[in-house]
């Protein structure tokens, strides 16, 4: 059963954490990008996407993350991932995201890593 993506934005200044739950696919792109751009519009530059609640991440979802990365890089910001299952971590690696994005074990680590 497909579950829509839920996005929770949590501010840990200067880090903005986007907790995502459900299925992260291309269909989730609009909702995810809206929250992301709202945060970016508010001045956030450091983003952590926490995948603890993600059940499914496909190439479409990865494409969304690629697009996010592209925009963050355009503004000089930083993107990190946290709480990723191994399969997703592998996918992320395969597509080359890990060349630009640090994958942390947990959200706290990511916040700490980006805040340092």
């Amino acid at each position: 059963m497909w579950q829509p993506l839920e996005i929770e934005a949590v501010q840990h200044a200067p880090v903005s954490v986007m907790r995502v739950r459900g299925d992260f696919t291309a269909e989730s792109g609009d909702a995810f990008n809206e929250v992301f751009r709202q945060l970016a519009g508010d001045g956030a530059r450091c983003f952590v996407v926490d995948f603890a609640g993600i059940k499914h991440l496909n190439s479409g979802g990865l494409a969304v993350l690629v697009g996010m990365l592209s925009e963050i890089q355009d503004t000089g910001g930083t993107l990190a991932f946290s709480s990723m299952a191994s399969h997703f971590k592998r996918m992320t690696h395969i597509i080359g995201l890990t060349d630009y994005v640090t994958v942390y074990h947990s959200e706290q680590e990511a916040i700490a890593g980006l805040s340092s």
């Binding site: 697009g67 592209s70 395969i94 597509i95 890990t98």
Partner: peptide, 12 residues
């Protein structure tokens, strides 16, 4: 073998 998708980043 890895790399960003075509269109993901111009500087890929």
């Amino acid at each position: 073998a890895r790399g960003l998708p075509i269109g993901g980043m111009k500087s890929a």
